[in-house]
């Protein structure tokens, strides 16, 4: 199948691969520990682990955009903040 119109690049493929891996890992976790690990977090929200992944990814998107708009195109700093943010979300939200 011809896929040149999709204009794949290695970085974007790695990005989607990472999302796919997250979803597979979440599925395996759900099969081993069913129920979604619901919790009432510090934001006052009732979240499952799927919600926490979504909040992590969405928030990370905004962290990268804010970094790009305010700091510049070198995104390592944004990646570090996003990882800390995702850890905090999974730990406390």
């Amino acid at each position: 199948m011809e896929l040149t119109w999709m204009a794949w690049t290695w970085p974007t493929a790695a990005f989607f691969g990472f999302i796919a891996l997250c979803l597979i890992a979440m599925t395996i976790r759900e099969l081993t520990v069913p129920g979604g690990a619901p919790r009432h977090g510090i934001l006052g929200l009732d979240t499952t682990r799927g919600d926490r992944l979504f909040i992590s990814l969405l928030g990370s998107g905004y962290i990268f955009l804010a970094w790009l708009g305010l700091v510049g195109p070198n995104l390592w700093g944004a990646l570090a903040i996003a990882l800390v943010y995702a850890f905090c979300v999974f730990r406390w939200v």
């Binding site: 119109w5 999709m6 204009a7 794949w8 690049t9 970085p11 974007t12 989607f16």
Partner: peptide, 10 residues
Amino acid sequence: LMTVVNYSVQ
């Protein structure tokens, strides 16, 4: 959506 992501970096 994947295609749009690919286009956005090229």
